Amino acid sequence: MLKPHHPIRTQRLTLRPFTPADLDPLHAFQSLPEVARYLYWEPRDLEQVRQALETKITQSALLEEGQALALAVELTATGELIGDAVLFWHSRLHRSGEIGYLFHPDHHGRGYATEAAQALLELGFDGLDLHRITGRLDGRNTASARVLERAGMRREAHLVENEMVKGEWTDEVIYAILQREWRARR
């Protein structure tokens, strides 16, 4: 069980639960084609973002396996919402989880996604005592692969044309790190 103390602060970021006030800034990047390019969904209109946000607002703790912890990512210096981070708790028995993140393109290339990913790994390993955490991505998304590598994860699998996404076969790449590896890196 994980009920994080909010907000979670990193060097430059604040990770916190989503609120209804996040609708417009969340829509500002979830509506962009370049953001949705490698995701299962198309760019979202305001109503679709509203529905997704309603779900995110309820995802503020991990009480049992199968749940997700959704966190809004702000620049601490300005309070601007720049991203969306998530930690999934897949299995209590196997102590496994997964991380994910999504950032406004205006903030790409500055290390924010890596910083948020490292905060998610810390939550999973130290807060939930997970044994293994993965990150999955579209094989074409090389920028996201670099984020996971910088966060300390290793590439474990490249599944060729294993999913039909938006009408085309896509590859999936899986990264992972074990708790003992994470602790050794710190």
Results as ranks from 00 to 15, higher is better:
G109H: 08
P33T: 10
L81E: 09
A151R: 04
M1R: 08
R150G: 03
H27A: 12
T55I: 14
L53Q: 13
G167S: 11
M1F: 01
Y112V: 04
R186A: 11
D129N: 15
V173A: 10
E172Y: 05
R186S: 13
T10A: 13
F125Y: 13
E149D: 02
L69T: 07
T55V: 13
L15P: 02
E172C: 06
T142Y: 01
A145F: 05
R110Y: 04
A61K: 06
D126M: 13
G97T: 09
H131A: 04
A36F: 11
H5Y: 13
G111R: 02
D45Q: 09
T55S: 15
Q59T: 13
R12Q: 11
G124M: 01
D171N: 05
H27I: 01
P4T: 00
D22W: 05
R92G: 06
L121G: 05
E54W: 13
G127C: 12
W182N: 04
F18W: 03
D129I: 05
I8K: 05
E54Y: 04
A36W: 06
R154M: 06
P7V: 14
L46E: 08
E156H: 02
Y38G: 03
D45N: 15
P33C: 02
V49M: 10
E115V: 00
L120K: 06
L2H: 03
I177P: 02
W182Q: 00
T55W: 14
A61N: 04
D22I: 00
I133K: 07
L128H: 03
L32H: 01
L32M: 04
A143V: 01
L15S: 05
P33D: 10
V35D: 05
R150W: 09
E161K: 06
K166P: 01
V160P: 00
H90F: 12
H104A: 13
H158N: 08
Y112C: 06
R183Y: 07
N141G: 11
L130R: 04
F125L: 10
T76D: 15
G83Q: 09
A184N: 00
I8C: 12
G97A: 07
E64T: 01
H5I: 11
V173M: 12
N162T: 14
H158L: 11
R132K: 14
L87V: 09
V165H: 14
E47P: 15
R180Q: 15
K166Y: 07
E65N: 08
E54D: 15
G124L: 02
A21L: 14
I174S: 12
